[in-house]
Design a binder for these strands. Sequence first.
DNA 1: TATTTATTGATAGTATTACTATTACTTTTG
DNA 2: CAAAAGTAATAGTAATACTATCAATAAATA
Lengths: 222, 222
Amino acid sequence: MKTLPIQIRIDPALYTKDPESSELGKKIVSQSIQLIDELGFEGFTFKKLGAKIGSNESSIYRYFDSKHALLVYLLNWYWSWVSYRLAVATTNVPPSEEKLTNAIGILTAKIKKDQTISFVNEEMLQRIIITESSKAYHTKDVDKENEKGFYRTYKSVVQKVSDMVLELNPNYEFPHMLISTVIEGAHHQHYFSQHLPSLTDVEIGKNNIVRFYKDLVLSSIR
Amino acid sequence: MKTLPIQIRIDPALYTKDPESSELGKKIVSQSIQLIDELGFEGFTFKKLGAKIGSNESSIYRYFDSKHALLVYLLNWYWSWVSYRLAVATTNVPPSEEKLTNAIGILTAKIKKDQTISFVNEEMLQRIIITESSKAYHTKDVDKENEKGFYRTYKSVVQKVSDMVLELNPNYEFPHMLISTVIEGAHHQHYFSQHLPSLTDVEIGKNNIVRFYKDLVLSSIR
DNA sequence: TATTTATTGATAGTATTACTATTACTTTTG
DNA sequence: CAAAAGTAATAGTAATACTATCAATAAATA
């Protein structure tokens, strides 16, 4: 687990105590990812996490107010990381269809093993995001949480890629809908391919999800 | 509340006792829709529902094994109803872009008041589907439930509209991904327009969600 | 080195949830 | 009228999602 000098900055509003500030905090984050992946978000509890990391439920509550708060933290971590990868792939690249499809690739492709840049297993985290992330904002408290900036990172990713759409076609009417449709759609397609395959057209080794969304975006804005 | 002679058939695997077979059963369904709409699925309990309909928690359990089972029932009710509306709009209509865009309209438009064909308030039900339906299949038990046919109605709607896509372009590679992307996407856009508007391009009175998805589909398959 | 201070652990407790089980009452039907 | 079916009321259970308190220990500082 090598740590490259990459900054994944998380808004302090998203935790009670910064999990990056201690070994316990990092364990909480990394092991919660494993446990949510294993049990699903509903089956996951702080008590079980405490047992897994040899710590106490009450200690975990010092870092996160609730398991929902932890999920929102993970969501922001994921989108910060995507944002970083988008920046690497597109800054100072002149507007072109290639630039945009590279971005779409980042938004829609499955992560391969060993991209780990820190204590977070990104492959597993993406699996959680695919399966559980919509539960983070399908809550009675969305509006309050949105005001507190809980979804800022996600919204900024959508904004960035929407801007690339407008670079290519300044008259395109629906850039945000297009990109948020692609992002959420790709999550659904990855999930469906595992569990409800008749809702997809996935074939092994053909990378159809990425191909589909690249084609969708280009044909819509051309 | 006029009742037209329309059959919304629900697979008996989806309930313990048929809620359409008694007044209590119908109350359970119609009032649960109101209560889920009001409290959100997490805040909704059978105890609260019992209080609301002047009945007992234990009586509700005779109709549905769990609140999750009730949600799955509502999901199937909704998709049966959409299926019926699709059939009305498209059977014996020759293949054409208009036929397909009519179908897309049914999948993506917000329901207006007073389409009520039975004891179910479809406008409210659609709001629940938009907000809560993804929770029905983002569960550790998806695979088991899928085998039992819990998602059959949804899958059949996707299949029907995918077939319309293939009528227009038999060589299109991704009809199922396209249609499931449209359906889930439209739900997200309706939800985002209320709660995270920067992820959309909704303007009042311009029907942008429907226009966006019709355009998306046609430009993809042409 | 002594002493605050911060951090973690352990234990206990609470209200609520998502049920199950039992019994009794009431309504329908044959 | 009696049997059967349906419903209501009550009680109980294990687990969840916390909160509160206090002791133990490690780290920081005076």
